[in-house]
Design a protein around this nucleic acid. Structure first.
Lengths: 158, 158
DNA sequence: GCGCGATCCATACTAAAGGATGAGGCGTCG
DNA sequence: CGACGCCTCATCCTTTAGTATGGATCGCGC
């Protein structure tokens, strides 16, 4: 069985091991062949045409590829947050923004209200206000829109 | 090698006909089978095992899927990357934002309060509210931060 | 002329945001 | 252990934002 692993590996390299991915990929392929063989046997279909096999495989693996591709892009989009790290990480510490404050800031940048932020982070409204208040001090902003604007220009958020 | 390009139109199915996509997909599949058959003939390989067929197809279509998936995501996320200039003018008219509303929107994006916007544009506070209200309607936003976020993603503002 | 949209302004009200202050739990570090 | 920063939550209060409604002017096109 050929080794297809590497193509998918990039998609989930952070969560899954290389060998594991390859193994799963191979298993999926084997399972697919088995299923097709079973169908061929079960319904007494002789000479199930190769084209049918290929069609089914093509569809399934295209879907798989689309999924993997999506993951791949997500990984790349999340990674750049890693590459611009220079400004990101640096600016973060320079301003002294904590983890939780960053969470609030990011949701804030997406246009969430304080209540929505509270709901998404599973904290209370006063807590969100607390974080945002300290954010405004650290970013020298008086309003949330200004804080978002400054944070973006500083590379703290995307 | 067959032309796989058009298949990926699945990523931008809105622009390409559905039938066209399916047809091209089928053509690609047929081409692939032909190639395999040719290889089987060319190298005098008898009984090329189905598993090999499936393996090859799986690899190719996974790659295809990855590519399509990437395109799909890019299209969704980086639409402005496709059309750098157009979105501005185009999106503006599409949403129906007027000149004055754009002025307000831009200052809003810079973190200005309504009062500051009023001062800079030499208009009254109620007028700014009037413009921003219609902006929220046109941008389908409930808050100014959300309006700014949407406007940026639409390429209406920088 | 007349409708229409854009711009401007106003008032009154509700909702959200922001500021000030205090306080408890928790992990770290000297 | 005790100071300290972070996270959490609360209450009171002020300011800003947003909604609703209405009215005025002006230019444009049918």
């Amino acid at each position: 069985m050929p080794n297809f692993g590497p193509m998918l590996k990039a998609a989930e390299i952070r969560h899954t091991g290389f060998r594991t991915t390859i193994a799963l990929y191979g298993l999926a392929l084997a399972a697919l062949v088995s299923i097709l063989k079973y169908i061929e046997y079960r319904f007494l279909i002789r000479d199930l045409r190769v084209e049918v096999y290929i069609g089914v495989v093509a569809v399934l693996f295209t879907a798989l590829g689309v999924w993997a591709g999506s993951k791949l892009i997500e990984g790349k989009k999340a990674a750049p947050a890693v590459v611009p790290h220079a400004p990101n990480e640096e600016a973060l510490r320079a301003v002294g923004i904590s983890t939780r404050e960053l969470d609030v800031l990011q949701l804030m940048a997406q246009g969430c209200s304080n209540q929505e932020i509270a709901d998404r982070l599973f904290i209370s409204l006063p807590t969100v206000k607390s974080h945002s208040s300290s954010l405004f001090v650290k970013l020298a902003a008086g309003r949330r829109t200004q804080a978002v604007h400054k944070a973006k220009s500083m590379g703290i958020i995307a």
